[in-house]
Design a protein around this nucleic acid. Structure first.
Lengths: 199, 199
DNA sequence: CATATTATATAGACCGATCGTCATATTCTG
DNA sequence: CAGAATATGACGATCGGTCTATATAATATG
């Protein structure tokens, strides 16, 4: 199946971008690792590398969204959901020998505004993940404002933990941060009215 | 002063890496923006681009460490120190038109293990920043274990918030996350014994 | 069944960019 | 002025991404 070549290219691209960054993943690398011939790229992706990268990133975003959604719905509470998702991320980090990472972070850091399309996809992904957390938190009784703030903090914590874990080649930081955030959420939910004044 | 050219190259390199990533900052870009001729690079940095990048990164690390240390020592409490540092980061983010960022994150994400030296410098920087927070938290009465965990969480939150802020072109997420983390720290300090069991 | 026609897939040439290197020019210093 | 320190831009090997020209597989047609 020719379609197999296509999906193989996408998967390889996603993996290489996560491992080496947007510009670090060259077409030669991608083609070499995916075993696809050079000329096939422009046939499957008339838009060139940018189109390939966009699809690869969207594939990674979709998978992450799906797993996050499943994890949150299966969890007994928002806090437990967060804990579980961070643990899953930690697991992937070790399994991948510390080449795993967020599918959008490398593009955000490597592409200034090089591609409006790529940047928009990154922005949308971060918002989607934030909203998944926010909805869960609101369903548990938090105000939209506070749920939103906590949700953004959860996403930020995970993004940072992924980077630190790779740098220090230890996934414990991901579970640690996840536990800390989970505790924070549990505390926020147990106190109907937060201790601080709101603006 | 020839030394002036050298420092100008370092500053430009740091800025471009923060804006476009390690591989996104080409020598042509660096030389063009710093106004330095091509050949001067190899005179000032016999190690080539890698040596230049290493020095640029270390310069950024040093500055960040200095500012963080000053902010924490001047702050009335650890929580206020965190709040202030996050606010300073948010300010730099808007001032730079969202090209500001952590000096090590782009290298961690772009360099697989391409350079042991670069990777080691990144790792050391993250550890140093973590220890600065940890010391402050311990001085305020937290156990080393809990202080360490909170410190790692602070660093991770900031790293992630910087990425999200750039993607969404808004610095409010940095201050929001900072306030949230500051509240968490304040709560941890007000309760001598944390609510959760420790391992 | 043989051939024509199209859809699919590939190979490899192309050109610009990147990075390291060097021979030479200029400026500083004693 | 001598000699060291620094600056300069041209050069080439390599790699990057794009594209056209060709081959293979699928389907249609007599």
């Amino acid at each position: 199946m020719g379609n197999n070549t296509r999906t193989r290219m996408i998967e390889t691209t996603l993996r290489l971008i996560q491992a080496r960054g947007l510009h670090g993943a060259s077409l030669n690398d991608i083609l070499g690792e995916s075993g696809a011939p050079r000329g096939s790229l422009y046939f499957h992706f008339p838009g060139g590398k940018q189109a390939l990268v966009l699809e690869a990133m969207q594939s990674g975003i979709e998978e992450a969204s799906r797993i996050l959604q499943d994890t949150l719905t299966e969890a007994a509470s928002p806090a437990e959901g967060v804990r579980a998702f961070f643990r899953a991320a930690a697991s992937e980090m070790t399994d991948s020998e510390y080449t795993f990472g967020c599918p959008v972070a490398p593009i955000i850091l490597d592409a200034p505004e090089v591609s409006t399309e790529l940047a928009a996809a990154c922005r949308a992904a971060l918002e989607e993940w934030t909203h998944l957390y926010q909805d869960k938190l609101e369903a548990a009784g938090l105000s939209p404002a506070r749920a939103g703030r906590l949700a953004r903090m959860i996403v930020a914590s995970l993004e940072g933990a992924l980077i630190m874990a790779r740098s220090q080649r230890t996934s414990t930081i991901i579970t640690e941060v996840g536990d800390e955030v989970a505790d924070l959420i549990a505390a926020a939910l147990s106190r109907p009215k937060a201790g601080r004044l709101m603006s």
